[in-house]
Simulated scan of single mutants.
Amino acid sequence: MSFVLEPQPTPSVAVHGEEARFPVRRIFCVGRNYEAHAREMGKDPTREAPFFFTKPADAVVDDGAVVPYPPLTKNLHHEAELVLAIGRSGFEVSEEDAWDLIWGYAIGNDLTRRDLQFEARDKGRPWDWGKSFDNSAVCGPIRKAGEIGHLEKGAIRLSVNGTVRQDADVADLIWSVPEIVSILSRAVRLLPGDLVYTGTPAGVGALVPGDVCVIEIDGLGKLTTTIGEPAK
Results as ranks from 00 to 15, higher is better:
residue 134 D to L: 10
residue 27 I to Q: 02
residue 73 T to N: 03
residue 202 A to Q: 12
residue 226 T to V: 02
residue 152 E to G: 12
residue 232 K to T: 13
residue 111 L to H: 07
residue 145 A to I: 03
residue 18 E to R: 11
residue 201 P to W: 00
residue 84 L to S: 04
residue 67 V to W: 13
residue 196 V to R: 03
residue 52 F to L: 13
residue 79 E to M: 02
residue 143 R to E: 09
residue 188 V to R: 03
residue 195 L to I: 06
residue 137 A to L: 08
residue 208 V to D: 11
residue 74 K to A: 14
residue 171 A to K: 14
residue 217 I to A: 02
residue 81 E to D: 10
residue 49 A to H: 14
residue 72 L to I: 08
residue 230 P to M: 03
residue 9 P to T: 01
residue 2 S to N: 12
residue 56 P to W: 07
residue 147 E to V: 12
residue 156 I to Y: 03
residue 109 N to P: 04
residue 157 R to A: 05
residue 221 G to E: 08
residue 218 D to V: 10
residue 171 A to W: 06
residue 118 F to N: 15
residue 199 G to F: 10
residue 211 D to W: 04
residue 80 A to W: 05
residue 178 P to F: 05
residue 168 A to Q: 04
residue 223 L to N: 05
residue 135 N to I: 02
residue 214 V to H: 04
residue 141 P to K: 06
residue 13 V to G: 11
residue 90 G to H: 08
residue 180 I to M: 15
residue 232 K to Q: 09
residue 52 F to V: 13
residue 146 G to P: 07
residue 169 D to A: 04
residue 142 I to F: 06
residue 75 N to V: 04
residue 102 I to S: 00
residue 17 G to A: 00
residue 80 A to V: 05
residue 230 P to H: 05
residue 194 D to Q: 05
residue 86 I to Q: 05
residue 11 P to K: 05
residue 89 S to N: 10
residue 33 N to P: 07
residue 88 R to V: 10
residue 95 E to N: 08
residue 23 P to D: 00
residue 24 V to Y: 03
residue 229 E to P: 01
residue 84 L to R: 02
residue 214 V to A: 02
residue 40 E to I: 05
residue 230 P to W: 03
